[in-house]
Write a protein that binds this DNA or RNA. Structure first.
Length: 468
RNA sequence: GCGGGUAUAGCUCAAUGGUAGAGCAGCGGGUUGUGGUCCCGUUAACAAGGGUUCGAUUCCCUUUACUCGCCCCA
């Protein structure tokens, strides 16, 4: 009874009209008369850019098919608490970079800053533990972080990622790394894998104590940020780039020395797989990853130039200090599903920032396929010819020809100009004269020659010519 | 969140304390139905607000955006 009442109350609450203040707010909102601009950190992807995206989408399709992954599409908007519980409250992503707001139903929601948490949520929601394990999923879509835009960083950016849920074997960690590596190298990017293990809850606990003790003894020499980070997220001190902190961390205890037997053997096996497959990797004891849910294996993939710069001793006055930018990142997260209320489920995955990959492709001038060319252009002159030409266009199209047109332009000169720009092989010209004769002109664009064809045989004729 | 640089036409770039130029792109021409070259014409800009000045696109300030770094991340 009481339950029912509560339900009624909820329903009532839900159908309440929008709060009056909010309605007023909308009414009083000053609409600018200027042409609206894209929001800061957001970007239009124009037609000229699409070939880069087409390339990446094609690579994603190939890779995921090869490795037996299935696509999952997740909502862009989720309960804010999903990300707080998974990514971690003390992380910058959640702490200051989420697009969060209260919706009209008084729900606290956020645009997704990443997808792994959603995958774990979906895995639980849809009972995927009943499927044959492991479950192999991939996603591709926009993520949102309210961050300061800079090179390779936007507030809306696209990630491609894969996740394997339901198995803890090190071979999967290795295969995930290999997939990410293959994705990037198949595009032609020279990359290097940075890998580390941050252990499980047990060994990390001991390590954290040692680490905090170590840093406490040097506290006065740390930068301001690190002083603040120390109690909250001590692991993060390890990848501070401040000079004085870098000096200190040389002597800091390393996580590998604290790994429990299981974590240590897991890590060793991952590395053995990488060696067997000759994946170039670097052990990076300073790699910790910012998201709370990671356990054991963590990795990033860097462009090789960055790796080279790191190996080189920093020269005084060295210029070209390009930001160190990871193209891909990932690792194992054996606790995440459980944190979100599912049964204990080990998992591992990666994500790749597609804008960053495109940036590198451009930087290195890598080959990107051109837009597919059209073979035939249909030009028309005069109203009745236009009707017939449109019909011809449809016929050719349904016959499978790559055919183009510009019915919006009437002059033959203009139409040929368009045909020329499209780089077609042939232009079919249909005017009043041809119409009355039952013919059509075929112009060979490269040769500049023309011949008259029988209109009724044009499809057959062209087919023959294009076969050669 | 913090610091540096920048802001002129759709794009790439000039010049100037006193009516803003070019190249590319666009559109229209070079007689009625013929592209790629060439020629001619034409559209189109000083990010917004304030200050100094007789007068500001130019100098100063603020805002906004872009950009490059830091933080963090893909």
């Amino acid at each position: 009874m009481a339950k029912l009442k509560k339900k009624e109350k909820n329903v009532k609450k839900n159908i309440k009209p929008i709060k009056t203040e909010k309605a007023d707010e909308a009414k009083n909102f000053k609409v600018s008369k200027k042409t609206p601009q894209v929001l800061r950190g957001f970007k239009d992807i124009l037609p000229g850019e699409q070939r880069y995206w087409d390339l990446l989408y094609a690579k994603v399709a190939n890779l995921t098919t090869d490795y037996g992954f299935e696509r999952i599409d997740l909502p862009l908007l989720e309960e804010t608490s999903l990300f707080i519980r998974s990514v971690g409250k003390e992380t910058d992503i959640v702490d200051k970079e989420m697009f969060s707001f209260v919706d009209r139903g008084n729900e606290n929601v956020s645009l997704r800053p990443e997808a792994t948490a959603q995958i774990a949520r979906a895995y639980i929601n849809h009972g995927m533990f009943n499927l044959p394990q492991p479950v192999k999923l991939y996603y591709l879509g926009p993520m949102f972080r309210y961050d300061r835009p800079q090179s390779g960083r936007y507030r809306q950016f696209y990630q491609f990622g894969v996740e394997v849920l339901g198995d803890k074997q090190p071979v999967l960690d290795a295969q995930i790394i290999i997939m990410a590596y293959n994705f990037l190298t198949s595009i032609g990017l020279p990359v290097n894998v940075q890998v580390n293990s941050i252990g499980c809850n047990n060994c990390r606990k001991e390590y954290k104590v040692q680490l905090v003790n170590f840093y406490k003894s040097q506290k006065h020499d740390l930068c301001e940020d690190c002083k603040e980070r120390l109690p909250k997220n001590p692991l993060r001190l390890l990848d501070c780039k401040e000079e004085k902190c870098s000096a200190i961390k040389e002597d800091a205890p390393q996580i590998v020395d604290f790994l429990c037997d299981e974590c240590k053997s897991h890590f060793m096996k991952v590395l053995e797989f990488l060696e067997e497959l000759e994946i170039p990797y670097s052990l990076n004891s300073q790699l910790v990853r910012g998201l709370d849910y990671y356990t054991k294996t963590v990795f990033e993939i860097w462009p090789q130039a960055e790796q080279a710069a790191l190996d080189k001793q920093p020269e005084p006055g060295a210029e070209d200090k390009k930001a160190q930018i990871a193209l891909a990142g990932g690792g194992r997260y054996d606790n995440l599903v459980e944190i979100l209320g599912g049964r204990p489920t080990p998992a591992v995955g990666f994500s790749i920032g597609l804008e960053r990959v495109i940036l590198k492709i451009k930087e290195l001038n890598l080959a990107v396929p051109e837009k597919e060319k059209r073979d035939i252009f249909v030009a028309q002159l005069g109203e009745s010819a236009k009707r017939k030409a449109m019909k011809l266009y449809e016929t050719l199209r349904s016959e499978g020809f790559k055919v183009a047109e510009c019915f919006a332009k009437d002059g033959l000169k203009n139409q040929l100009e368009v045909a020329n720009k499209l780089g077609v092989k042939y232009t079919l010209i249909l005017g009043q004269k041809e119409l009355s004769e039952g013919t059509i002109l075929l112009r060979d664009m490269d040769a500049g020659s023309q011949e008259t064809l029988n209109f009724n045989k044009v499809v057959k004729d062209i087919k023959k010519r294009l076969e050669v």
